[in-house]
């Protein structure tokens, strides 16, 4: 497989694994009333490292997987993760990529906005949602757990995606004048 195809394949595989682990293991973990969202963490890491196109595409793919595995309304998670992936990708492309705090800021903001967006979407779809449960009971522990897992997930994604990345090297220096 060429390097051009290897990288998207790796990113897709990472997202696939994250989605399977999320629906089978991480969603069952209950710490302080919340659980970590490894799909969002993986998506944020990939989007920061590879930009908005990767972020939006993989966000859509991840949402589709999660909704399919849970037999939930198709498109809801896709919509939220597509927007989150695109936005984080743009942040990475413009200012965030090389900043140490970028993954943490992105994860915290994305967790809050995705949760808020999900609340609005489910309300619009007619689901009986409790804003208090979603925003007061589960959101703070979720943000905390996501922040705790940001560094390891980001490090793993960075390591795996960096293998196939083209390395810019200086081959010749010509003195002018």
């Amino acid at each position: 497989m060429s390097a051009n195809l290897l990288e998207p394949a790796k990113a897709a595989l990472l997202i696939f694994l994250a989605a399977i682990l999320q629906v089978t293991i991480f969603s069952q973990i209950d710490i302080l009333g919340g659980y970590p969202d490894v799909v969002l963490l993986t998506l944020v890491a990939i989007a920061l490292l590879r930009g908005s196109i990767y972020g939006a595409t993989l966000g859509f793919f991840a949402g589709l997987l999660v909704d399919t595995a849970n037999l939930a309304t198709l498109g809801v998670t896709s919509l939220l993760l597509t927007i989150a992936g695109y936005w984080i990708g743009r942040y990475g492309e413009t200012t965030g990529r090389d900043r140490l705090h970028a993954p943490f800021v992105s994860v915290a903001v994305a967790t809050v906005l995705v949760q808020l967006g999900a609340l609005i979407l489910h309300y619009l779809l007619g689901d009986d949602v409790s804003a208090k449960t979603v925003l007061v009971t589960t959101l703070p522990p979720k943000v905390l757990l996501n922040l705790l897992l940001t560094l390891p997930v980001y490090a793993v994604v960075r390591r795996l995606l960096a293998v196939g990345a083209p390395v810019e090297t200086v081959t010749e220096v010509r003195l002018l004048g």
């Binding site: 999320q22 629906v23 991480f26 969603s27 799909v39 999660v66 689901d127």
Partner: peptide
Amino acid sequence: VISRSPSDFQQQIG
């Protein structure tokens, strides 16, 4: 039980 909905809005399992 093979999955659990990763959402606070719907309490569902697969």
